[in-house]
Computed example of a mutant assay.
Amino acid sequence: MYTHSKQIITSGLPVQQAKKAIVMLHGRGGTAADIISLQKVLKLEDMAIYAPQATDNSWYPYSFMAPVAQNQPALDSALALVGEVVAEIEAAGIPTDQIYFAGFSQGACLTLEYTARNARRYGGIIAFTGGLIGQELAIGNYKGDFKLTPVFVSTGNPDPHVPVSRVQESITMLEDMNAVVNQAIYPGRPHTISGEEIQLVNNTILKKS
């Protein structure tokens, strides 16, 4: 079993110049560079971009719906790494409510898990095909108040990795914690990020305030 070393790729504006930052989490088998390449299509021009790299290109070894113990210590290590990145952004002077998150697939699951365990008012949360982690949801882990943070969660129906039922369950949990969730379920869509999702996120969460 593995833990993650701190390897972070940055892009976008230098954090000292930026008023906002985004933490981007790649999917299983992906890389930090892959997820950062979304800056070509997402409206991230005014942000400092941080993308941590998972050891062996995977945040945890098994399905996100496996018993949590099977995904340890990798899962706790991944959550701690995201926490370190957030602390680094805050230390650079960007307040929590200007910190955004975006992840795809395994990275989307990690994004939702981290933010639900540390619910505060964030700038926005984007989970391209993801849900909260565990064989069943460990409600006791989810603490805090999102204070109307906008959240986008999507999946295909059916999706080979992320069942619609878990997405719905996750959304209910997030809404109970005062997140404002926009969900998109795409019939027959392969396990990918569609142009429609990009457009939706650009027009809602990343819309210039």
Rank of each mutant, 00 (worst) to 15 (best):
S5Q: 15
K6S: 14
Q7Y: 10
I9Y: 14
L13N: 02
V15S: 07
V15H: 10
Q17T: 10
Q17F: 09
K19R: 11
I22E: 07
R28F: 10
G30P: 06
A33L: 15
D34P: 01
D34R: 05
D34T: 08
I35Y: 02
S37V: 14
L38F: 14
K40S: 11
L42M: 13
K43D: 13
L44Q: 09
D46K: 12
Y50G: 08
A54T: 00
D56A: 15
W59V: 07
Y62C: 12
S63H: 13
M65P: 09
A66Q: 08
P67C: 07
V68Y: 06
A69M: 03
A69C: 06
Q70C: 11
Q72K: 03
Q72W: 00
P73E: 07
P73M: 12
A74G: 01
L75D: 07
L75A: 08
L75K: 03
D76C: 04
A78G: 02
L79C: 04
L79K: 05
A80W: 03
A80V: 13
A80E: 13
A80S: 13
L81K: 00
V85T: 06
V86N: 02
A87F: 05
E88P: 07
I89M: 03
A91F: 10
A92T: 04
A92V: 09
P95K: 10
P95S: 12
T96P: 09
I99C: 05
Y100A: 05
Y100R: 09
F101M: 04
C109H: 00
L110N: 04
L112W: 00
Y114R: 03
Y114D: 02
T115L: 03
R117D: 11
R117H: 07
R121C: 13
R121N: 15
R121V: 10
R121A: 14
G123Q: 13
I125S: 01
I125L: 02
A127D: 15
T129F: 11
G130S: 15
L132V: 12
I133Y: 01
G134P: 05
L137S: 05
L137R: 12
I139L: 05
I139A: 12
I139P: 00
K143T: 14
K147D: 04
T149V: 08
P150E: 09
V151M: 07
V153T: 04
S154H: 10
T155K: 05
N157F: 12
H161Y: 10
S165D: 05
V167A: 09
E169C: 00
S170P: 03
I171M: 12
I171T: 05
T172Q: 13
M173L: 15
L174I: 12
D176H: 14
D176G: 14
D176M: 14
V180N: 13
V180H: 11
V180E: 13
V181C: 14
Q183G: 13
I185Q: 11
Y186H: 14
R189A: 15
H191K: 04
H191M: 07
G195R: 08
E197T: 09
I198R: 02
L200S: 07
L200F: 08
V201C: 05
V201I: 12
T204Y: 06
I205T: 11
I205Y: 02
I205L: 11
L206M: 05
K208G: 09
S209I: 14
